[in-house]
Amino acid sequence: MVVRPLNPGEVDAVAELIHRSTNDWYKKSLGREIFSGRPRDCRIFPETYESLDPGCGLVVELDGKLAGVCFYHPRETHVGVGIMAVAPEYARQGVARMLLDKVLAEAGTLPVRLVSSAMNLDSYSLYTRAGFGAVMAYQDMRIPSDAPLPPVPMTHGSVRPATTADLFPMVDLEENLAGIRRAKDLAHFIQNPGGHWRTMVYRDQSGKIDGWLTSVDHAGCRMIGPGVMADEHVALALLHAQLSVPRGGWPIFLVPTHESYMIAELYRWGARNVELHLMQVRGPYTQPTGLVMPSFLPESG
């Protein structure tokens, strides 16, 4: 097996690998597929990752075929591990561990963060054996299309679309509340390449930004997140604003399991649980002082 950088001409092959590998696991383990569209819809993953971090996509080649793929994101405060997929026919042959070892070597002394399914014990074991620890649990939730949203939650601030002038206040807020900094990601969300990103900020009465939340609406990924907020009231206002925008389908969003007030309110909105995910970290970790809603694209924990 050989680990090497992803070549530009392999985007379609990587998209097909992500589609096939992920659907294979979900169908065998949970009786359903996660990607309902075409394999090429999963191009959004390599295209986004390569746009943000050229050369940080890794593949394992075995006998001239792509056996696995993984993406990583070097940031100011940490390294994020993005989607990892292994072709079903190469499962349990050390492909994922080979990719992870390469990412850890590239990370050096920086903390490494990821979000992974709590229902996939193989991946959980892969990461914990490599020194990761689970630091936060999330409920994947979705509001069905037949559940009308309630009125806008009452707050003392307002929600509006993010602009380039908001970039560094947003970056600073995430560092203050969650202990990580990733200006490159936030600039990508605001600039909206491809037209499928939507980012909103919450401002209090003085005009200070107390939260932000982005989303992606694409056939390969419909999700609200990532975002950080000062408290659950800000989070609910931002989430309501995102859910109120017409989309191609109803997205999922991740809510910390300990946020009981927010979760109870979301149940009142008609939300249902879809899955559970864990934030796992290797290295130093600071407990957030605000509310964090992560995403799978791009993952940074």
Rank of each mutant, 00 (worst) to 15 (best):
M1G: 12
L6V: 14
L6K: 13
P8K: 12
E10R: 15
E16K: 01
E16D: 11
L17M: 07
I18Y: 06
R20E: 09
S21C: 05
S21K: 05
T22W: 08
T22P: 00
D24S: 14
W25L: 12
K27L: 15
K28N: 11
K28Y: 11
S29Q: 14
L30D: 08
R32N: 08
S36V: 11
G37K: 02
P39R: 00
R43E: 09
T48H: 00
Y49H: 15
C56S: 13
G57Y: 04
L58H: 11
G64V: 10
K65V: 02
A67V: 13
V69R: 09
F71A: 10
H73N: 06
G80H: 06
G82V: 01
G82E: 00
I83V: 14
I83G: 06
M84G: 14
M84W: 08
A87M: 13
A87Q: 12
P88H: 15
E89W: 08
E89P: 05
Q93S: 12
G94P: 12
V95A: 12
A96M: 14
M98T: 11
M98V: 03
L100C: 08
L104D: 03
L104T: 05
G108L: 07
L110A: 10
P111V: 10
S117H: 12
A118D: 14
M119Q: 13
D122S: 15
D122C: 11
Y127Q: 04
F132C: 11
G133E: 14
A137V: 03
D140S: 15
S145E: 15
M154N: 08
M154K: 10
T155N: 04
A162E: 07
A162M: 00
T163V: 01
A165P: 02
L167R: 00
M170T: 03
V171E: 02
V171D: 10
D172K: 13
L173R: 07
L173A: 10
L173W: 02
E174C: 08
N176S: 14
L177Q: 02
R182T: 00
K184T: 10
D185H: 11
D185I: 15
D185P: 09
A187L: 05
H188A: 05
F189S: 02
P193R: 05
P193L: 04
H196A: 00
W197I: 01
R198Q: 05
T199S: 09
M200Y: 11
V201Q: 02
V201W: 02
R203A: 12
D204H: 06
K208S: 09
G211P: 06
L213F: 08
D217V: 04
D217H: 13
H218I: 02
C221L: 14
G225Y: 04
V228D: 00
A230D: 07
D231C: 06
H233D: 14
V234W: 13
A237Y: 05
L238T: 09
Q242C: 14
P246V: 05
P246R: 06
R247P: 06
I252E: 11
F253C: 03
S260M: 05
Y261R: 10
Y267L: 13
W269S: 01
W269M: 04
E275T: 04
E275K: 02
L278F: 07
M279W: 00
V281M: 08
P284R: 11
Q287V: 08
Q287R: 15
T289K: 13
V292A: 10
M293W: 04
M293G: 02
S295K: 15
S295E: 12
F296C: 13
P298Y: 10
E299N: 15
S300R: 09
